[in-house]
């Protein structure tokens, strides 16, 4: 068995107690939610963690609400609950993302707050939330603040969270009519991290011409890859395969994915090109009102 190094365990009763505890214990104390990223890291003995503050049972932090103009997902909502929620019904790319993460066992424990807070470059929520221009809600001893998802992750495993701060939820502005999105990764198997993933969110006018687009590549750099040029290249087109290929090149050509056990840089760029066409086509169908399934591809 692999054992984590010894740590002290705390289970505060409420959010305020957790925030005070995290601040008092300092930067080597870590919050523990579902533990699906943190526990494997502790078992590999990454980092010097002295204390774990178990926030997994804190009340009221797992609510999922679909409002008139935005959806809100509490930080402790699990991927499985999000996949089965009204928000996933309304926003298909949320369904793709929540239902495509790892496997059923991990989705039952892992949380959206934990996923984005780790800043792991291979996780799915942060890039998917970029396509929706989501807002991250943060609470600390000094009060609450909000950060755009694009500003939240600054580098691999690095976020704007200060010691003693926790993510309490994410807010997703609901897209206008004739919008659709998709988020799909390619994995070697369900529990494996994606080799690469692509997310695209589109809005069409009444003539099926694209009037807004947000694309993202994931798992191929230290943080989600975005491109204003690629987004702009899709606007004004009818999103034919040729249009998608041209826009995809603007974001994929300059990406230099790390060569690793999941493949070489060239191989990953090939995967990205295929995914970009597939995800773009699905997003377009959904923007036109088709209700189609999509999920991560794995053998």
């Amino acid at each position: 068995m692999m054992y984590p190094a010894p740590f002290r365990y705390h289970r505060p009763e409420n959010l305020n107690a957790a925030l005070q505890l995290l601040q008092r214990l300092g930067e080597d104390a870590k919050p523990l939610a579902g533990g699906q990223t943190l526990i494997p890291m502790l078992k590999m003995r990454v980092g010097d963690v002295t204390d774990l503050v178990d926030i997994g049972r804190l009340p009221d932090l797992d609510e999922i609400q679909l409002g008139e103009s935005e959806a809100r997902i509490g930080a402790l909502a699990t991927h499985a609950r999000i996949a089965a929620s009204s928000v996933a019904q309304r926003l298909p790319s949320v369904r793709d993302c929540a239902g495509g993460i790892a496997d059923a066992q991990v989705r039952a424990r892992g949380t959206i707050g934990g996923s984005i807070s780790t800043g792991d470059p291979s996780t799915d929520w942060a890039p998917m939330l970029h396509t929706m221009a989501a807002i991250v809600e943060i609470q600390g001893p000094g009060g609450k603040r909000e950060v755009a998802i694009d500003d939240f992750i600054t580098d691999a495993y690095t976020t704007v969270l200060q010691t003693g701060e926790l993510v309490t939820g994410v807010r997703i502005p609901l897209p206008p009519a004739r919008s659709g999105g998709a988020y799909i990764g390619y994995k070697r198997s369900a529990p494996a991290y994606p080799t690469a993933a692509v997310g695209i969110q589109l809005t069409l006018d009444e003539n099926d011409v694209c009037i807004a687009a947000r694309c993202v590549l994931s798992a191929v750099a230290s943080r989600p890859v975005t491109s204003a040029a690629a987004d702009a290249a899709l606007v004004g087109t009818r999103l034919t395969e040729e249009d998608l290929r041209a826009a995809g090149e603007l974001i994929i050509a300059d990406t230099n994915p790390p060569a690793d056990v999941r493949g070489s840089a060239d191989y990953k760029r090939s995967v990205l090109r295929g995914l970009f066409l597939q995800v773009g086509a699905k997003a377009l169908q959904r923007a036109k009102g088709e209700n189609i399934e999509g999920e991560h591809n794995y053998v």
Binding site: G35, I39, P40, Q105, V106, A108, R109, P191
Partner: peptide, 21 residues
Amino acid sequence: SYCGACTIRLDGDAVKSCTLF
């Protein structure tokens, strides 16, 4: 947390008991 041989049910959910304290 990969192979699932340690899967048990925790309050009904199938979860991996190697990734849970």
